[in-house]
Amino acid sequence: MAQQPQTQAVRPKTAYTKGDMVLFRDAERFWLGLPGHTFVGRVERSWRHAHTGKVLYDLVELSGNRHRAGIDPDYMRLLPPADAMRDIDAAPLSEPDPGAMTPAAVAWLRQHLAQDAAALPVLR
């Protein structure tokens, strides 16, 4: 019987920049089954470890505004803006019931309608 080749997850090679939103998992807490192991953070800075030469990151945890230093990028994933804005981009604008739209889409529409009410076409 032929042995099946083992598959591995491919780790993305990403350089994060200040202001990027990322998902971070504290591997130690995760493997110990402890709560609070995964959070969303904003990249504040990057720096190179003096002994290993590995690039590490300092993050601000968005849920608690806590600073986390020396984060290994192997446990970070970029949160693309397109994912955060998908509900607005896909809002059912022709839907007669505004409640069918997500709250983010409604908030965006209200903001832009209030700013640019004069530019709206006249309803017939």
Rank of each mutant, 00 (worst) to 15 (best):
A84R: 15
A117K: 11
L34F: 03
A119T: 05
M85R: 11
W31H: 12
K54E: 13
A107W: 04
A82H: 09
R45A: 15
Y16I: 11
V43A: 07
K13D: 13
R110Q: 08
I88M: 02
Q4A: 12
S94N: 13
L113C: 08
Q111G: 00
L93P: 06
L78T: 02
L32G: 03
V60N: 11
L23G: 10
K13L: 10
N65S: 13
D97K: 09
P12A: 04
T38E: 12
L59P: 04
A27F: 10
R11A: 01
A107N: 07
A82D: 10
A91I: 03
I71F: 07
R11I: 07
L93I: 15
R77W: 06
L109V: 13
L62R: 15
L34W: 03
L56V: 12
A104Y: 03
G33S: 08
P5E: 11
M21Y: 13
D58C: 11
V40C: 14
P81G: 03
P81C: 02
F30I: 01
I71V: 15
G33A: 05
L62Q: 14
V106E: 00
P5A: 14
E95W: 05
A119G: 06
W108L: 00
D83V: 12
G36S: 05
Q8V: 11
L93N: 06
I71H: 04
Q4C: 10
G33V: 04
I88E: 02
M21I: 15
M1R: 14
Y57Q: 07
F39P: 03
L123R: 10
L56G: 06
A69W: 15
A107F: 07
H51I: 10
M101D: 00
H37I: 00
W31G: 01
R48C: 09
M1N: 14
T7M: 10
P92S: 06
L34D: 00
A9V: 05
Q6E: 09
V43W: 05
W31A: 05
Q111L: 00
A118T: 09
F24I: 04
P73V: 06
Y57T: 07
V10M: 05
L123K: 09
L34V: 01
V122Y: 04
A119D: 05
W31M: 09
G64V: 11
T14D: 01
R25Q: 14
R48M: 09
M101F: 00
L109K: 08
R45P: 07
Q111M: 00
P103W: 06
L120E: 00
E61Y: 10
R29A: 12
V122R: 10
V43S: 06
T102E: 01
P5C: 05
L123P: 04
G36R: 07
